[in-house]
Design a protein around this nucleic acid. Structure first.
Lengths: 195, 195, 195, 195
DNA sequence: CGTTAATCGAGACGGTACGTCTCGTCTTCAT
DNA sequence: ATGAAGACGAGACGTACCGTCTCGATTAACG
């Protein structure tokens, strides 16, 4: 993330403790992994990180915001876009890499955050801005390259293709619970892609 | 729904009050529409319906279960599958009808239930069994007919096409918040639909 | 006290649990005795009594109010006024009995409540109404009898004598910390009393 | 007061800011008067005085200590003992002057300090040493002179008379809240005073 | 027709988590 | 070294809900 500190106001007063912030993010990742999002309280989080509760609220607006940033840290390894010369193959690679990143802890984080976004509009905006939009932009780039190379059917709009690809992924994550694997990635590309 | 009470056990004692049950379902719809799922408590729900809290727990296991049944009541009109002779056209009609059912109150209900399903596995199963699976079966039927008529590309599996179609819908509902309209339905079918 | 339940409103709803109330009062006495007024929190009190925190606030406005009622329960054995025929002797007996009631736990309670009354006007009123006034009335009765028997100097008003007697007691309790014993009681009566 | 810094240790570094100290004392007086002792925090106090919190803790051990010194500043004018030749009259004068010093702000300060002394033994000692004892010594001097002149009843001990006189005053201040005026002073002296 | 028993509205109960507040300490830069 | 500023660890506060329990009052079916 990093956008949180646009006006660092470094000057008077004790500086914010980046170590405490990092400890909180790691504690959030650990606790979500161990007990699930519902399984720990803000007090547990503070205790695990060795901080006070107020320090959490000094950095974030609530539990969901902490976990969102923890997820961003966890999934920091950005999904890179390969360039093999075959844009459709690059698209397959991108989707497979995206699915591969969905280890159990990450899935738990994603589900918890998506859950929160449904019932908290303010968090929904943050979630989109800080997480969804940039992943979506990466996929849109892949799709645009495939389109430019003439490897997509004429009838569809890029944005709709992105909706279908990421939509299928989120649908399996959030609604059906069916697994995300390389076979599914290929089948998806076949369904929307090939001539 | 209604599966909850197959053996009404009409024995002695005061019979259960169906009017209270109906009032609770309507109150749930109203409250989700007015304040959102987080915006009201079980106590608020009971007060709005003019019942006691225990009456709610006599019929349902928790807030999400009430809202699930309220959604079923709200969206009772099943999406019918048309048969015009052109299966792709029937598919377009099905998707458009599905999108058209997503009025703001229904969307609020769907988001609330999807949210709850992320953090409560028991409810997730109920949600799939009582709601998701039958909608999915209807779409799968449409897709199968189109497949049989040779109107879908050879490379894709039916289940994956269903994932893409419903996935795109839920993705817009839950993640991006972009609207569901007839134009999007057509574009989706164009994207997965073949030549 | 008992004044708390003027409109019991017994009718609808689960009745208030007198056992929980009694457990809370006993827990308050125990905790003040063991750790002092500052040494326990509302959460400790609830835990010790085996109740929820909300139940405390359902009966009382805050910590001081609970402890006040606990003191009243503790010191329920009202100071009786004897009638030996010698009103001055009765006065000595009354003051000695009052001092004798000041065991360490009671002293701790009294100091804590007096402390609270200094900084919380609402509680100060409750403290006077439920505790101070009735003790003062008892002493005033003793003094009036002595006055009627001609055993007090002509120059003083009864209220002022009461101020001096109880004042000396509270002064030692709250300000100097010097002990309250029978010798002091006699000396006090000698100072204001006898001809 | 002022005993706290007998060796100012004027060594290297910036000297302590007496202006900040004075501002803090005045801010304490103002805040106790405006909002009561409970009505402001150390942070409020620092903000009002335009200092940092640490500066307060450099001079005093806590809120009560600041307020104690603020009271000493406020009530700096010592109660003088007159010598008219009539020791009882001198005693009346002393008590009246003492009562007259109890303006609303001073009363608020006294109540706050007495409150704190009940729940903090260390502060109670400081309070007695720095405030109570010297006032008590002055009154004891008055009483001793009256005793020497034969103007007090034979039966009472001086210390007990002091307890009764100051006790009645503190009792009205802390417990009953009834006013302190010249009439009360005279009535008190009449009650303990003499034949 | 009285008894019996389940359900009703109401609301108190034991719990848990929340987000705020205050305390006294610590850490920065500027004097 | 001290100043103002303000973040920090700690922990109590009072509130909001949860799901359960306990009242008196209803309302059938059973005897």
């Amino acid at each position: 993330m990093g956008e949180r500190d646009l006006t660092p106001k470094r000057g008077r007063g004790r500086p914010r403790d980046e170590a405490a912030r990092a400890a909180l993010l790691q504690a959030a990742i650990d606790l979500v992994g161990e007990r699930g999002y519902r399984g720990f309280s803000m007090e547990d989080l503070a205790a695990r990180a060795g901080t006070g509760k107020q320090t959490i609220y000094r950095w974030w607006a609530g539990k969901a915001e902490v976990v969102l940033e923890a997820l961003a840290k966890q999934a920091e390894r950005q999904i890179a876009i390969t360039s093999t010369g075959d844009p459709i193959e690059d698209l397959r690679t991108f989707m497979k890499a995206t699915f591969a990143a969905a280890d159990p802890t990450t899935v738990a984080l994603l589900k918890a955050l998506a859950s929160e976004a449904q019932v908290d509009d303010a968090f929904a905006r943050t979630f989109r801005t800080r997480f969804i939009d940039r992943r979506r932009a990466a996929l849109a780039e892949c799709v645009a390259r495939a389109r430019a190379a003439g490897n997509l059917p004429a009838g569809g709009a890029d944005e709709v293709v992105v909706d279908a690809l990421f939509g299928a992924m989120w649908y399996r994550l959030l609604i059906t619970g069916t697994p995300l694997d390389a076979v599914f990635a290929d089948a998806l590309i076949d369904a929307i892609g090939g001539p």
